[in-house]
């Protein structure tokens, strides 16, 4: 991928900074081959299921289950895909999932960074109590509130509707913790002080100073939230009772349960469901491989 260009005060962590190398450069070159060997075994293990799912999705179920099995991609992909389309509303589910993930992410970034900025840089009455409460409830497992959340959704009339997925997801304390931690160290107080002297209020400081400086932290929170929303399964399984309104995950699971005998078709569906998130990840990944050494690999 492209060499990352990072805004913000990144110099600190960059290994490419003229900090001295850990190991004396005289170390034997031979020894440096071993890690690559080990790492490639791991890479193969990590990527093999993807390859195998492509093999399954492009062959027929019968090919896969023959002895010896087919180990190379076949020519039945379109047939398997059209079988998926015949059984579930794939694009409807895709659109639902995308809308929920995008809206959730946008709102989480906004709300959490606002709250986090307040906690990171401002002293106000109740700050400690509120943050302690956040910490305490963060420790509680999610399913503790599953039943009441369902009953609340019932009262709101949101059962079977997409806002039932978005709104509870906004109340995730993780983002506030993360952004508070990030902003308290990366947003320089001097700049804030200066901007206040210029007459900037809280929201302008947030928008003009905190948000630009904390962009890498926000990028992480964005992908974390997006992936979590995209892949959420338990909650949609419970609240999305309307068969016309499903997400990719619940549709996929239905494909498996109702038509589980056609593995090739199920795999084609699974593959199609992960491609968008993979593309999104690869697209955003430049934020994550962001350190100096990344530049070494073109």
């Amino acid at each position: 991928m492209a060499a990352p260009t990072l805004p913000g005060p990144e110099a600190a962590a960059g290994a490419a900074a003229p900090a001295p190398k850990r190991r004396p450069s005289g170390a034997a070159r031979r020894r440096s081959l071993l890690p690559h060997l080990v790492l490639w075994v791991g890479v193969l293990a990590a990527l093999f299921p993807f390859y195998w799912s492509v093999v399954m999705a492009t062959n027929t179920t019968r090919d896969i289950f023959s002895t010896p099995p087919k180990l190379v991609p076949g020519t039945h992909l379109l047939e398997n895909i059209s079988n998926v389309f015949a059984r579930i509303d794939f694009f409807g589910a895709l659109a639902n999932t995308a809308v929920v993930a995008v809206v959730t992410t946008a709102l989480v970034l906004t709300l959490d960074s606002l709250a986090a900025f307040a906690f990171a840089k401002f002293e106000f009455p109740g700050r400690r109590v509120l943050f302690g409460l956040l910490l305490l409830l963060f420790m509680l497992p999610a399913q503790l509130s599953l039943i009441p959340q369902f009953l609340i959704m019932r009262e709101l009339g949101w059962i079977g509707q997409l806002q039932a997925l978005v709104v509870p997801a906004l109340a995730n304390a993780f983002g506030v913790f993360w952004m508070r931690q990030y902003m308290s160290t990366s947003v320089p107080d001097e700049v804030l002080d200066a901007s206040r002297l210029d007459g900037c209020g809280f929201f302008r400081q947030w928008w003009h100073v905190a948000v630009p400086t904390a962009r890498p932290g926000l990028a992480f929170l964005a992908i974390y939230t997006f992936v979590a929303s995209w892949n959420d399964y338990v909650w949609p399984l419970i609240v999305l009772v309307n068969p016309q309104v499903q997400t990719l995950q619940t549709s996929l699971a239905q494909l498996n349960v109702s038509f589980g005998t056609d593995y090739s078709m199920v795999m084609a569906g699974a593959l199609m469901a992960i491609i968008p998130i993979m593309v999104a990840f690869l697209f955003l990944s430049r934020w994550f491989v962001a350190d100096g050494t990344a530049g070494a690999v073109k």
Binding site: G92, N96, V99, A106, L107, V166
Partner: peptide, 18 residues
């Protein structure tokens, strides 16, 4: 697709979402 998604999107739009 579904009405739910549309009405939901309206709500989301009002919230100023992206």
């Amino acid at each position: 697709m579904s009405l739910s998604r549309r009405s939901f999107l309206l709500t989301a739009g009002l919230l100023g979402a992206a």
